[in-house]
């Protein structure tokens, strides 16, 4: 029963091609909602922010808070940690960034060197690094051995970039708003 429609590649073919293309374009548009529905929805995009009381974190210690489903490390750095971080500004860093560029000013307008705020997600493959571990006493990722310093900068291992600093600001001396 094979019917072959040879001959005249003219109006007839044009009509078929036009019809087929028109249908294909419609189908492509119809697929978009099915794809887009998997993107973050309006309730997710209504971005959450958290306000954190940092007065209870003693010097030399760190607390973890959950923000947008991820851990945020807030570290109250000691003078030694600050000094080590600043000294390493000059070191050969895989992802060069000065310590001061990773800090934010307090209510007075002065840089709050005591407070390091980073997202606690290894930039390699997303594990949560362990604090106060590794060669630089910063962070050590147990998954694949990435080592971060006391400024959260990558120093050794497979991670390509420094720990991310979330958007945050000091609301007062003792409270910061993340997000």
């Amino acid at each position: 029963m094979a019917q072959t429609h040879a001959v005249e590649p003219t109006r007839r073919d044009f009509l078929y091609v036009a019809t087929g293309s028109f249908a294909a374009v419609g189908a492509a548009f119809a697929v978009w909602p099915l794809i887009d529905q998997m993107n973050p929805d309006a309730s997710v995009l209504a971005l959450a922010s958290i306000e954190v009381d940092i007065s209870s974190i003693p010097e030399g210690q760190e607390s973890t808070f959950k923000w947008r489903g991820k851990p945020v490390f807030i570290r109250h750095r000691t003078d030694a940690e600050i000094a080590a971080a600043e000294a390493d500004d000059a070191a050969a860093l895989p992802d060069p960034e000065s310590d001061s560029a990773r800090l934010r000013p307090g209510p007075s307008g002065e840089l709050e060197k005591k407070w390091l705020v980073v997202i606690g997600v290894c930039t390699h493959l997303g594990c949560v690094p362990l604090s106060y571990r590794g060669e630089y006493d910063g962070y050590f990722c147990p998954c694949h051995g990435s080592v971060y310093d006391t400024s959260g900068r990558i120093r050794k291992g497979p991670a390509p970039t420094n720990l991310e600093v979330p958007p945050y600001e000091f609301v007062s001396d003792s409270r910061i708003l993340i997000g």
């Binding site: 978009w32 909602p33 099915l34 887009d36 529905q37 993107n39 929805d41 309006a42 309730s43």
Partner: peptide
């Protein structure tokens, strides 16, 4: 939630 927040949720 599907009707209000999910992208094209109302349509689907």
């Amino acid at each position: 939630h599907i009707m209000r927040d999910v992208n094209y949720g109302w349509l689907i």
